[in-house]
């Protein structure tokens, strides 16, 4: 029961960080600042949700799969953030404010 509450809290806090990432995506002035919001806030959001779900998992296999998903998403988001920023710099699209 206590575990359920801890898991639910972690997932809820994780969701707050996802909302923060999206708010940053909408409010921040340019592509680079938006990348900060997406890579960092959503990354922690996913980590919290994954941790919460892992607490509720039935088997070690499930925990492993959650961990694997988190690891690859974290790796991909840092790498994609770099690639998008590099493309924006090289193509000059990052200078355009909207």
């Amino acid at each position: 029961m206590l575990l359920d509450w801890i898991a639910a809290s972690l997932i809820a806090i994780g969701a707050v960080f996802f909302v923060a990432g999206t708010v940053g995506l909408l409010r921040f002035p340019d592509i680079y600042c938006r990348l900060h919001a997406l890579t960092k806030a959503d990354g922690l959001g996913l980590a919290l949700v994954a941790f919460g779900v892992a607490l509720l998992a039935d088997s070690a296999g499930e925990v492993f799969r959650i961990l694997l998903i988190w690891f690859f998403v974290a790796l991909a988001s840092a790498t994609c953030g770099h690639l998008i920023a590099r493309y924006a710099r090289q193509s000059g699209e990052g200078d355009a404010h909207d």
């Binding site: 960080f17 923060a20 940053g24 409010r27 680079y32 900060h36 990354g43 922690l44 959001g45």
Partner: peptide
């Protein structure tokens, strides 16, 4: 550090002034 980074950017996203000097 990554928790600090996420809290920092989330706080900026929600704060009216954002405090950005990119």
């Amino acid at each position: 550090q990554s928790v600090r980074g996420a809290v920092d950017v989330a706080a900026r996203a929600f704060s009216p002034r954002m405090g950005l000097r990119p």
